[in-house]
């Protein structure tokens, strides 16, 4: 597999910094606006792009991403639009890893095999599905595996040592550590608890990069997480910018992402 994800994490590591993983909701505010936002993420220095698939019932999301889902669906975004956005992105940015993130129902509606094949054809590198835990892996995991698309798993503060091996079994691409028990866009966890959690995950995860997200808003927070994790995810803060500036959001997104990237660059090296 031409593995953009592992290549990118390796490159960041070689540069002595954490990867910057950025999330936006696809089709927000309209399907036609997303390409410019994605380009702004890349231009600002994002390493990995998470493209959110809008869903009517985003149960794990706070108000920022809920509203983005509503804007996107309100303008008529279809699953086909998401794949068209991904396909065009892949043509413009052959090397930037792209991950689709969303909820189970839109992913399995036409069958997991259909979804996995479409994702592969669109140049998507991985899938993050919020509501398919390892217990229901059969719903999507095998289809992604067959298609050669990474299944990115989530670990949380409630994932204890006994459960972790089950989460890691079949996880690929990277491991997404949700640093707070809660929904997106709310408070951030204390740096000390993140550090401890990442150390615990690293002990079991082998070479799988550990990426930390939920509640990260400021360059300082990103830098603090960047000191201990392989990557840091920023989502709601970017989605808020799109929410405020609509189809004019790209330059604001780019400037904000550049500030995050700058903070990751200038971090003190740990010995």
């Amino acid at each position: 597999m031409n593995d953009r994800l592992s290549a990118r994490f390796a490159a960041c590591k070689a540069q002595g910094r954490a990867a910057l993983v950025t999330f936006v909701t696809g089709g927000d505010p309209t399907p036609g606006d997303t390409a410019a936002v994605l380009d702004a993420l890349v231009a600002g220095g994002a390493d990995v792009i998470e493209l959110g698939m809008p869903f009517t019932d985003p149960m794990a999301d706070g108000s920022a991403i809920q509203l983005a889902n509503l804007r996107s669906l309100g303008s008529g975004t279809k699953t086909a639009d998401l794949f068209a956005i991904a396909t065009a992105f892949r043509q413009r940015h052959p090397d930037v890893p792209l991950v689709l993130m969303g909820y189970a129902n839109p992913m399995i509606r036409r069958g997991a095999d259909w979804f996995a094949a479409q994702a592969k054809a669109a140049g998507v590198d991985g899938i993050i599905c919020v509501d398919i835990p390892p217990e229901e892996d059969a719903e999507l995991g095998p289809a992604l595996d067959d298609a050669g698309v990474h299944m990115v798993r989530l670990a949380t503060p409630t994932t204890d040592a006994a459960r972790l091996p089950q989460v890691l079994d079949g996880a690929s691409g990277f491991l997404y550590y949700v640093s707070v028990a809660g929904i997106t866009g709310k408070q951030q966890a204390a740096t000390a608890s993140i550090e401890e959690a990442v150390a615990r995950l690293k002990a079991s995860a082998g070479d799988l990069p550990i990426v930390v997200g939920f509640g990260v808003r400021t360059p300082e927070q990103a830098a603090a997480i960047g000191r201990v994790a392989d990557g840091v995810v920023v989502g709601s803060a970017i989605v808020d910018i799109v929410g405020s500036h609509g189809n004019q959001a790209a330059p604001y997104v780019q400037a904000y992402v550049a500030s995050l990237r700058g903070a990751l660059e200038t971090r003190e090296k740990v010995a």
Partner: peptide, 20 residues
């Protein structure tokens, strides 16, 4: 034992809720 009624049922929740 996995909470399935034929193809239905199951436990489709976020990882945070799974241990609970």
């Amino acid at each position: 034992e996995r909470g399935h009624f034929g193809q239905f049922g199951g436990r489709y929740v976020a990882e945070t809720l799974m241990p609970l």
